[in-house]
Design a binder for these strands. Sequence first.
DNA 1: TCATTAAGTATGC
DNA 2: GCATACTTAATGA
Length: 231
Amino acid sequence: MAKLDESLLTGLPPFSMLNRAQIREILDHAVSRRYDEGTTIFHEGAEAERFFLLLDGYLRVVRTTPGGDQIIVLHISPGQLFGIAPALQRDTYPATSIAAAESIALSWPVSLWPDFTAKYPGFATESYKTLGQRLGQIQETLTEMATQAVEKRVASAVLRMANQSGIKTENGIEIAFPVTRQNISDMTGTTLHTVSRLLSAWQKDGIVESTRKHIVVTDPHRLVILSGAQD
DNA sequence: TCATTAAGTATGC
DNA sequence: GCATACTTAATGA
């Protein structure tokens, strides 16, 4: 296996306080893998054998409700840790992770987690920080789901993706990974029909531009207004 | 206001 | 040319 370059980890929050030698040490224990779009990296409830860091691509994190349908809980962007069940004191994964686009991730056996948190300054605190942020975001989405009207929920879901992964183009902010209407309905607890209608209406109003699996937010400000601010 | 049904068009391997 | 993505209208809770 080819040696991984140290520049992969320098600058990433969990590793930013480490020196070259420490990063080298971490990389030498890591396994790098590529995942095609749509590939499941691990399943909810499965034995957590490894924890991961996303180097490139985007992931959907999906949970199955008691009813049986899947809802998209959050997305993972490059540079983020995921599958960190050990940080939650769990030995199974709390959710399923699926590659939303072609992705590359590093992983380590969970047996190394105690070493990492003990040996590397900043690693533990940074991990718990992202974990806390995620929990907060999930809770926010959940209360939003329960209280807000559909149009607001879809608006904030699109905004979240644009903020998290958006790349600037001439026309606006483009969501960097493929998203279907179905995906958005899975994030917002509505139907793909409603999402389709909303996106069509917004396109007519010049707020977004969308083609298949592809969304550009052309007027973020008005989408923000739709997402919650009242007129 | 929104889900559901249903019936259509567009797109891409 | 077939499966998948998306659109639109109609109906009714």
